[in-house]
Design a protein around this nucleic acid. Sequence first.
DNA 1: CACCAGGCAAGTA
DNA 2: TACTTGCATGGT
Length: 220
Amino acid sequence: MVCRKDLLKIYELLHGYFGDLHWWPADSPFEVMVGAILTQNTAWTNVEKAISALKDRNLLSPTALFGIDEETLAETIRPSGYYHVKAKRLKSLVRFLLEQYSGNIEMMCAETLPILREKLLSVRGIGPETADSILLYACRKPVFISDAYTQRILRRHALIPEDTDVAQIRALFMTHLPHNASLFNQFHALLVYTGKTFCRKIPKCTPCPLRILLKETGPR
DNA sequence: CACCAGGCAAGTA
DNA sequence: TACTTGCATGGT
């Protein structure tokens, strides 16, 4: 099982290799939230198309999304896939924002981390990863985002037992690492970037940089 | 053509 | 509680 030292070493190696990644790719906190929902089990390239379509129609604000009917919204975000489901999820998101915070995201982010996480998780369509993405990349709260990439990379390198789920992995990172938003921001970005770059074809993931880097730097 | 992508909720036993 | 299934487009 990975320990604190392993995690710090992985971070150090990836950061040394890829540098600062400046995530999340979005122009505003609200765009982060929308992107977090649209990217659920979906390739980011498809999400970009949907976000562009929303921008073209000036729909990237809570009030604008609230005002539009669900079917039109669905058609607009169609390239991101699951578009009927995601239109509903965006609708529940903006209802939440308007009801709780008058659509003011600054106000939302003023909540304490545990309270806000619970509130986000109570919104239909926001699960653990989406909530954590919003907390970290829209509000800069210190949470680690555990996702499919994180799990895949740790598994491939045999750093965790096969049956370790994403929630357990999240707990691992959160207990072993300092609660620092910048660290968690970079770390998740680096893991996703690594996965996107080197683990495209899933069962094979031939040249995984981690292994190469670990080899190059010797045994941990 | 087959398979996959930065999940989540609802249904079943 | 612990599985299973539906949701869907676009890239490789």
